[in-house]
Design a protein around this nucleic acid. Structure first.
Ligand SMILES: [Mn+2]
Ligand SMILES: [Mn+2]
Ligand SMILES: [Zn+2]
Ligand SMILES: [Zn+2]
Lengths: 126, 126
DNA sequence: ATATTTACTGCAACTAAGTTGCGTTAAACG
DNA sequence: CGTTTAACGCAACTTAGTTGCAGTAAATAT
């Protein structure tokens, strides 16, 4: 089930995602907000915001959880599937609008594709 | 550094990968071999076999580590990059020979691509 | 404005994958 | 067989994420 009460903690977390468009890891949020709320609360709210279709989650290069804003999803439908890019220098992660074509795999039916590209971002290029 | 001594434990682990062509998770190996060797030993040997270019590793859907045989890699060069497929019914994971084209991403340089497809495998199809 | 209801929160304890340090064992080799 | 040291087992640790429960504060009713 999603968010039912707009508590202080929910507002603080929503603000974090409003302020920047890149993805944020759960670990970063815990570190950044540890004076304002408990890590349990953070995990629980992120989970609910995902149910609501406001955030989507994915795993970064170490298998740790990252969250980013959805665009046009709802609690009924998460159609927001796309590749992600993690910079190996600064660690920043972004959603990519790029569409990557998955060819048909013989004898298998693909339902989900999880694509994480790693390399160098624009800011770290120079 | 890779394997220097062909110990009993190393032989047992090599056998596991000789017997089947699908990928095996570290967790599965620990469970399967816990009477024969310690989990620390398993992690250390897998790590060395990867250094040697005999195995390659990747993360499955929960961010847990999986290993599979390489074909034609060496300790100098791991050129064995390809997508993986995890069956959502039986959990089995395979290496895919399929090549997936990663388009150029504006303002970013892609070094590595990590692709995990999820769906239904042949055996679970019926 | 106050009372009631219950979703949400904080805390402490837990789970589980993977790592580290160290004393002991057993490959490799002369 | 004896020596060397890579590799092993064990216990303790690290860390991301989860769970149970008692207390708190939103939302709603009175
Ligand atoms: Mn995204
Ligand atoms: Mn593979
Ligand atoms: Zn960067
Ligand atoms: Zn299957």
């Amino acid at each position: 089930m999603g968010i039912l009460r707009k508590t202080k903690s929910v507002k603080i977390l929503l603000d974090e995602f409003e302020e920047q468009s890149t993805a944020i890891s759960a670990i970063t949020l815990i570190e950044r907000l540890h004076l304002k709320m408990n890590k349990t609360t953070i995990y629980r709210i992120l989970d609910k915001l995902e149910d609501d279709g406001f955030l989507h989650s994915f795993l970064g290069k170490n298998g740790h959880k990252w969250y980013a804003k959805c665009s046009g999803c709802s609690s009924e439908e998460h159609h927001d599937i796309h590749p992600h890019f993690q910079c190996l220098d600064c660690g920043k992660v972004d959603c990519l609008p790029t569409d990557i074509l998955i060819p048909d795999i013989p004898n298998r039916k693909v339902h989900v594709s999880q694509i994480l590209l790693q390399g160098t971002c624009e800011a770290c290029f120079n």
